[in-house]
Nucleic acid binder design. Structure first.
Lengths: 323, 323
DNA sequence: TCAAAAGTGTTATCCTTACACCCATGT
DNA sequence: ACATGGGTGTAAGGATAACACTTTTGA
């Protein structure tokens, strides 16, 4: 980095020195269908949708919006920037090229009618099976992750490092009767990476180390970016009314609850959930009821669009207790 | 944006079409000196330190760290990415060049001994005088901002828009006996910009519109970036132990409290503050005391470095009540 | 009649905020 | 003595989580 004064010179000299960067957008597009959170992927490749940032777009957001809406034929309700990476290099014909990846989180609804060969939706728990605690602590976590993480912590030579590893693992995964914190998605993935328990960190498992833990792989660092997106969304739903971007125009309170549970990966206390949603005036009755799935018919609700103005800033609360 | 398959081709064709981007880093470096939050600026120019991202740095963070540490001769304690912008264009000799600005927040301590011609520190409330509520609601807010914002809201033609403006202003600035929320720094700045009450939005004040509101101007969108950084820091101190990055090695609890108050722009309830800090075991006594400023000598404390490991994830609490 | 879901009422607990008060030191 | 800052005890209020129980439908 230089002072402002030297900045201009540096930049016109760019092409001589073959120093340039290119910018990619990477999108984490989320929908919730049949109570499962899903992520938009490209082809069969387990890659997040991405591509070069084009000059004709006014801004990063508008570029992303245009592209996604073209491909999914569904408006992108909510878009938020996640993170910008520049740690990777790409080698071109004659130049070393720096690639800057700007990642975004977007929320939509899955278009049921469409079958596209270029993209598809996949459940996010395919990539992170240890993150779904709706039916209790998943056995993958208990039987596979726990012992391997313990072993990794214990294999450290210095006592300080052992203690540090044990503590980080305990906090992230809720060991030693700590509570499970569903927001720590990225920390957990990074610990698994650091412990080389995830296939992306193929430092030694193919040459004698331990095999990777279950969970679908993605190209490059896309799984890490997805983890970032999930973590952000899990935090966000607790204080901003973004869940509604994932809902159909009208819905029952249980459907809304199931969506929240799908995202958070944990169950919610039903009576308290309903109260909280209604107290906050986030929704209004449509007058209709639904009598699908056995039981007393449920009132249909619709999101009160006006709260978007009121609450872009103010907040939403969700009770995330044990069910 | 394109699918992955077309990505490679697009990129090698970059130089022919003169389409390339360049990347800038922009840094919001904060220190707190004598109970005032200060920001590192360049020269006399009211600009944040910035410069091109250089290829020889391993990552964005390391590039920023190296540069700042070279110039301030003080280690950068905490660094966090703020936001990436690409909305501006810069015109080169023969090309239109897209500039991507990646902004960072960094925390240090101000080096007292040093006097550099290339950079200096300036109180952040010079730029945002309406943000300092430590001595009560500032008169700038009461006497100047309030009537102008009301007027702007009322001048809207459609009733819906009027209502929307009134509501957003009321939430952001705490009108109609709403509480002041110190975290909404960016929303407030954006409202002032939208209302053209800030010199950056010089749409009409020099041709007959209202003059800008008090508050020091910065070049380009730097004041907006600073607002983003302040907002982020004000939120962060409430749940992560980052204040300590701004403190000298040892300090009294009142000094710590004054630092928090300087950042938050509001007073804190002393007894509760002390309890909360001590209960959380964030600090330990050094054994020494300080008897500077009249009154009973205060115990000196030091930050417990071990909590960095424990709490990178877990949290810190601060009581931000009325004092 | 039972299962399944929709709802209501109330209590226990904890955290936040505030109030009241005493202690130690320098001038 | 009094001003200034250090420091402790405790109670009021609100938010959250939990428990217990009633209602309405379809099979």
């Amino acid at each position: 980095m230089q002072d402002k004064t030297t900045l201009a010179k540096k930049q016109s000299g760019r092409s001589d020195r073959s120093q340039a960067v290119s910018a990619d957008l990477i999108a984490v597009i989320i929908a919730v269908t049949n109570g499962e959170p899903r992520v938009l992927t490209i082809g069969q490749t387990n890659a997040l949708p991405s591509g070069p940032f084009e000059l004709d777009h006014r801004s990063l957001q508008s570029g992303l919006r245009a592209w996604v809406e073209r491909h999914t034929s569904h408006p992108l309700g909510y878009v938020e920037q996640l993170y910008t990476f520049a740690d990777r290099d790409r080698i071109d014909d004659e130049h070393v090229q720096r690639v800057i990846s700007i990642s975004y989180l977007g929320l939509t609804r899955e278009e049921q009618t469409e079958r596209s060969p270029t993209h598809g939706w996949r459940g996010w728990y395919d990539y992170f099976p240890w993150e779904d605690h709706r039916a209790g602590v998943p056995s993958i976590l208990l039987d596979i992750l726990t012992p391997r993480l313990q072993a990794w912590a214990d294999e450290a030579d210095e006592p300080d490092m052992r203690h540090d590893r044990r503590q980080r693992v305990a906090i992230a995964f809720g060991f030693d009767d700590r509570d499970w914190n569903e927001e720590l998605v990225l920390q957990r993935y990074e610990l698994l990476y650091e412990a080389a328990l995830v296939a992306e960190a193929k430092r030694n498992w193919h040459t004698g180390g331990v095999p990777p833990v279950p969970g679908r792989l993605m190209i490059a660092d896309h799984r890490r970016i997805l983890a970032t997106g999930i973590a952000r969304l899990r935090t966000k739903i607790k204080y901003r009314p973004v869940v509604f971007e994932l809902m159909p125009p009208t819905f029952t309170l249980l459907q809304l609850q199931r969506t929240v549970e799908a995202l958070a990966g944990r169950l919610v206390h039903k009576p308290n959930f309903r109260r909280l949603i209604e107290e906050q005036n986030l929704v209004e009755e449509t007058g209709e009821t639904m009598s699908d799935t056995g039981g007393r018919p449920a009132k249909r609700f619709r999101f009160r669009q006006t709260v978007l103005a009121e609450r872009t800033v103010a907040g939403t609360k969700l009770p995330l207790s044990r069910g």
